[in-house]
């Protein structure tokens, strides 16, 4: 009886161990699949030609597969979203964490989580019908679907991540720091920005990195407002991101073109892994403090 019970417990333990390892298996599965399916096209095209080639003409008679324009568009688009989104998100976070009354804070926080919950296609739809025509009229360009429209949409979409993570970081600042600063004669506002913010800087850095990850990985909303032509990035021109390059041609692609799309996904994945590593670095620093 005792032996039976013991072997039963061991079996249960084994089952839970398998369940526990499932995330690890998923990560391995994704990594292995992306590498296996992404390498062949890079080999055939040549790494340098693939990464730094300026023209993408996958359906031309003499196809050329250079993704420099996609990489640069993704980098510029993300940078633009950060430049606009981070200051707004950061200031909102300071307000929420330090100034706002509890009631205002509850209302604002639920508004922010709503912003996070809105599906990306809804952002895309609103962008298509408000932002794109507005940009066409304001800047007198033939088509408003452009890098600029994508940057605006992305900067709105990264706001919730930036606000939430920054608020958490700012709230974790020990009250003694702030009290000391106030006692030395600094005003509350000076205390928030010269004491609390520097004390929460790794958390805020983590928020920014999280925003970068969100922005670089977004596909659908960007696809709906960026015009989707494989141009080198320019603010008021139709552009294609790494994500949208994969999404827009996948349904009708075949052969080397399809393999090249997998290679683009692999490049995107490497970017994301790099961002994840940076994020973990900052989060770890926050925890250690």
């Amino acid at each position: 009886m005792k032996g039976k019970k013991k072997s039963f417990e061991t079996a249960v333990h084994g089952v839970f161990l398998l369940l526990g390892l499932i995330t690890v298996c998923c990560v391995l599965l994704i990594t292995v699949y992306l590498i296996i399916s992404g390498i062949p096209a890079i080999r055939e095209i040549g790494l340098i030609k693939f990464l730094f080639g300026k023209t993408w003409a996958s359906t031309a008679a003499e196809p050329s597969y250079g993704i420099l324009s996609f990489i640069l568009t993704s980098v510029y688009g993300t940078a633009g979203a950060i430049v606009i989104g981070v200051p707004i998100g950061f200031m909102t976070a300071v307000y929420l964490a330090k100034v706002a009354s509890p009631r205002v804070k509850t209302v604002m926080e639920s508004a922010v989580s709503l912003l996070a919950g809105i599906p990306s296609v809804v952002y895309g739809l609103v962008g298509m019908l408000i932002l794109v025509p507005a940009i066409r009229k304001l800047f007198h360009v033939p088509d408003g679907a452009s890098l600029f429209a994508a940057i605006i949409v992305l900067s709105i979409m990264i706001l919730p991540s930036i606000i939430k993570v920054s608020v958490t970081a700012l709230e974790a600042v020990p009250k003694e720091y702030e009290d000391a600063s106030l006692a030395l004669g600094a005003t509350p506002v000076e205390t928030y920005f010269k004491v609390s913010v520097p004390a929460a800087k790794s958390g805020i850095a983590a928020a920014v990195v999280l925003g970068v990850g969100r922005a670089i990985g977004e596909a659908m909303a960007v696809m709906m407002v960026s015009g989707n032509a494989a141009n080198m990035p320019s603010l008021f021109q139709s552009v294609r991101f790494l994500t949208t390059a994969v999404a827009s041609e996948m349904s009708y692609s075949g052969g080397l073109q399809r393999q090249a799309l997998f290679s683009i996904a692999l490049v995107l994945f490497l970017f994301i892994m790099l961002i994840n590593a940076t994020l973990n670095f900052f989060l770890k620093r926050t925890k250690e403090r």
Partner: peptide, 25 residues
């Protein structure tokens, strides 16, 4: 630590990549 790192990695991967691997697998 490995399992938690894997879970964090999963939550950072963009959905288009999930779509692609889902299609392949």
């Amino acid at each position: 630590a490995v399992i938690e790192y894997a879970a964090e990695t999963l939550s950072g991967i963009p959905s288009i990549i999930y779509g692609l691997v889902g299609m392949l697998f």
